[in-house]
Design a protein around this nucleic acid. Structure first.
Lengths: 173, 173
DNA sequence: ACCACTTCTGCGAAATCCGCACGCTCGGGA
DNA sequence: TCCCGAGCGTGCGGATTTCGCAGAAGTGGT
C-alpha cells in the first residue's frame, strides 16, 4: 500500500512543523493544520478521506481530531445566520472600561446572549456581539445587564441590519 | 379557474407550526430548529441519535440536514481561534460610506482576508472583521484595499488583543 | 378523483467509526 | 550504555453509521 511516505516521515516533519510558535496555546504542526483545513471545508468529512489528504492513517487522524477537540483548539459545529433561525435582533456593542478589563470581559462571557467577546486596542476596550430574540430583549441586555456591570464606563451599540458574509475558511486561501 | 374560495382550509395548524415567522428566508419549522440545535452541540453527531432526540427516523434527519446544507441555512464546519492557527493579527474595522452602502459591503465580501461583514445602524455603516498573518498584511488590507474603495469616507480599526468567547449555541439556552 | 410534489419510513449493502494491541522514536535517569 | 516510559502512528476486527432506493402518507392544484 502506501509505501514510501510513511517510513521517513517522522523526523523531519516535526521540526518544520513547529515553525510558527504562537504565543501561548498548544502549538500545531503542519499536519494538524491540514486536518483543520479539511474540516473547515466539511465538518463531517470521514476520517479516512482526511487521512488520504494529509498522508496519515484513519486512526491517526481520529486521534488528532479528538485531541484538538479536547484541547479546545477547534470545535465542529453547525453555524447559521441567526436571523434565519428566529433571532431577529443582533448588535455589536463597543464598551469602555475603567479598571480591570479582563474581569468585565469574563462577566460578558457568562451571559448567554453574548456570543462573541474580544478585547481590543482602539477607542473601545471590548467588543461584544449580542444575539437576541427581539428589541425588548436586546434593550434589556444592554441597559440592564451590561451597563450595570461595575467598571463599565460607556457603551455604544451597532444594531445589525444585514449580515453579508460569515466565513470559516482561514488557511484555505 | 382561480376560485380563491378558501374552501376547506383545515387550517390553523400550519400557523402554529410556523410560530416564528422570520422575515424572508426559507422558514424553518420546530423540528429543523431542533436538528440544528443538536448539530450546534456536536457537528458530527450521528443522524440516528439526532432522530431519537427530535422524534424522526434516521433517514428523515439525513434528508433534512442535506436540504439545510444545500439551502445554505447552515453549514457544518470546524471553527478555531485564528490566533492559535497562525493568523496573528485580527481587527474589526468600522466603516463610514457615502453613497451605496451595499455595493461597498459586496466589495468587502470579495476580499479573502475579510471574514465577516455586517451592515449596521449607528455611527458606522459597516463592520468588517479582518484576519491577517501579520501587521504588514493587516496594514496593507486596511490602507491599500479598504480605504481605496470609492465611497469609503472613513474607517476606524480595533485590533484584537484577546479573543474571550466564541460560541455557536443559539437556541441551546 | 387524479396527478404532481414533498416528506417520512424501512431496509439491506457499503462505508465509517471505534477500541485495542503492537511497533517505533525520542529523552531522561541509573 | 541500557532500560523504561511517554507520545504518536499503524493495522485490524466488530459495532455502528451512512447511503441509496422503493414504497407509503399527506398536501395542493386542476
Amino acid at each position: 500500500m502506501h509505501s514510501e511516505v510513511v517510513a521517513s516521515r517522522s523526523a523531519d516533519q516535526r521540526d518544520s512543523s513547529r515553525e510558527s510558535r504562537n504565543g501561548g496555546s498548544p502549538q500545531l504542526d503542519a499536519v494538524s493544520l491540514a486536518i483543520i483545513q479539511q474540516l473547515q471545508e466539511d465538518g463531517r468529512r470521514p476520517y479516512a478521506a482526511i487521512g488520504k489528504a494529509v498522508g496519515l492513517s484513519e486512526a491517526a487522524v481520529r486521534q488528532r481530531v479528538q485531541k484538538l477537540l479536547d484541547q479546545g483548539v477547534m470545535q465542529i459545529v453547525a453555524v447559521t445566520d441567526p436571523l434565519t433561525v428566529g433571532f431577529r435582533r443582533q448588535a455589536m456593542v463597543g464598551i469602555n472600561v475603567e479598571g480591570d478589563v479582563e474581569s468585565i470581559a469574563d462577566a460578558l462571557t457568562d451571559m448567554s446572549e453574548v456570543e462573541y467577546v474580544v478585547m481590543t486596542a482602539g477607542s473601545f476596550d471590548i467588543l461584544a456581539e449580542i444575539v437576541c430574540e427581539d428589541d425588548d430583549h436586546l434593550l434589556g441586555v444592554i441597559n440592564k445587564r451590561i451597563r450595570a456591570l461595575p467598571g463599565v464606563r460607556s457603551t455604544e451599540s451597532f444594531v445589525y441590519l444585514k449580515l453579508k458574509k460569515q466565513t470559516y475558511m482561514w488557511g484555505t486561501r
